[in-house]
Computed example of a mutant assay.
Amino acid sequence: MAGAGMKEIKTRIKSVESTKQITKAMELVSSSKFRKAKEQAESSRPYFNTLYNTVQDIAKNTGNSKNVFLKERKVNNACYIVIAGDRGLAGGYNSNILKAVLAHNSKNTAKVISIGKRAKDSLSKRGYEIIDSIYSVEDAVYEDANRVAQRAMEAYKNGEVDEVNLVYTEFISALTQEPKVVRLLPVTIDKNKEEVKKDKSAVEYLPSADAVLGYILPKYVSGSVYGAIAESYASEQAARRTAMESATDNANEMISKLELVYNRARQAAVTQEISEIVAGASSAQ
């Protein structure tokens, strides 16, 4: 019986060691991808922050703008641009994005533009209408972001939707990533009167602030989508690296415990064998 138990423990140790090799390899791959993704996310932030501030400054100076993307209206139909991962094994990364969408819209009637395989699979199963998609976050380029941004703007302009929200994961640090829901359309303008007055005296837009706003708004929307893709991809790799590192540590701990159990079983088997030999010798005398 002892021999059979020792064999099972040995098989279990080999199984955990095989799993550990996989999780360690995935951790190393994610670490390599994370470094590149982090650089891309951090380098893109200044551009998109400047773009956002520029839109805010121009919009404050347009007064009663007739731009359709600034007009508030009753929200009967919403659109969500949802960015999740291409695959799993990233802790709660994908589930947290799904929870953010469901918390913001629990009716399951919104239109969705999905970015990433997990976003499309999860939301389509819950009854959301997928009107456009980018299959892979890792392979997404600016042209892809621009295409889905144009689709969202078209849906808003034609009255298909009354609001466009961007759902992504903000990269804060290697250990912290935060799901966010940001309204893209209509553009929310800070109504600080003192800032408006100051801006009017400092900046003049030609041919007009409204015309400049009409030109830059599409770039703002597509730029926001691409910036969110960069943030989300860095967050996904960070989350996966953390999850695989934790899995590797758990495997090491499990192997240590199994080895201890194995050594105790082997010691017990040796002790039992010695006892049987001594008992046999005593009986012979």
Rank of each mutant, 00 (worst) to 15 (best):
A4Q: 11
R183I: 07
A209H: 06
T19L: 08
E245N: 14
E231N: 12
A279H: 14
A2T: 07
E138T: 09
A281Y: 07
P207S: 02
G159D: 09
T109D: 12
L184D: 08
T188R: 02
L213F: 14
E143D: 15
A281K: 15
D249M: 11
S15M: 10
A284D: 13
F34Y: 10
A84H: 01
N165S: 09
G63P: 08
I274N: 08
R12H: 05
S275N: 14
M6C: 11
I274D: 10
A100F: 06
T50F: 07
S201V: 11
A37Y: 02
S32N: 08
E143F: 13
A119K: 04
K120G: 09
Y205F: 09
T188M: 12
K107F: 04
N61H: 00
S256P: 11
V203C: 11
Y128R: 01
V270A: 06
R151F: 12
G92R: 11
R266W: 08
N77Y: 09
S232W: 03
R266Y: 13
S18P: 05
R12T: 11
A59Q: 01
V167D: 03
F69P: 04
K60P: 13
L185N: 04
L102P: 09
Q267S: 13
S201A: 14
L28W: 01
M254P: 07
E129K: 15
E273M: 10
